[in-house]
Amino acid sequence: MNGFENDMAHTLSGVMLLMSFLLLYQRRIPGLIHAFAIQAALLGIAVSWQAVMQGEPHLFITALIVLLFKAAFIPIALLKLIQRLSVPQAVEPVMAIGRTMLFGIILCGLSLAVMQSSPQASALIVNEKLAMALAIVLLGFLIMIARQNAVAQVIGFMSIENGLVLAAVEAKGMPLIVEISVAFSVLVALAVFGLFMFHIKDRFDTLDTASLENVRGEELP
């Protein structure tokens, strides 16, 4: 593996991380979906790049799934959903955007610190890539908890998945990636399906997750 190939992979990961920040920054649902689509597309490219680089053609399957399913199908479906529900399209941030960004940066630092603390002699660069994947995962998580909106939560979740797939493909020669990504896609599909089921079947007029939490605990005697 030569320098350029690594730099390329590195850059792709970096841009994906940037997209995560963009996701954090979005105030409107369509923007969120678009940013996610871009991140997914970048992931598809990164996976393909690894497929070429590692000479593992089956990774193309993963790339294809990512591109078709996550970069195209799901964003479109989500956009349709929003249109059909014609709900207010603002994301209700629970945490102020600025503070979320700041927190995101801290998380990036943390992931770097965690990975730096394990300098495996051979794979310093791998560690850095892993750090970026971890940062994407953590930022996805942050989106899930910083936004009180079902679509935002699903997107946060999918963003976590992006980070994971990125980590998996960067692990040299890791088998079963395809199987794992398929399995994951099912999860994602179920998530989206869940959204549809809740919001269309019961005709909720908001995507605020608060409506999903009427029966939070148990009733008193």
């Binding site: 971890l134 976590i160 994971l164 998996a168 999860l187 998530a191």
Partner: peptide, 13 residues
């Protein structure tokens, strides 16, 4: 589903 999936995702990592 939501909590379990996130958990599963972390386990994958």
């Amino acid at each position: 589903f939501l909590l379990g999936s996130v958990g599963i995702a972390l386990a994958l990592f």
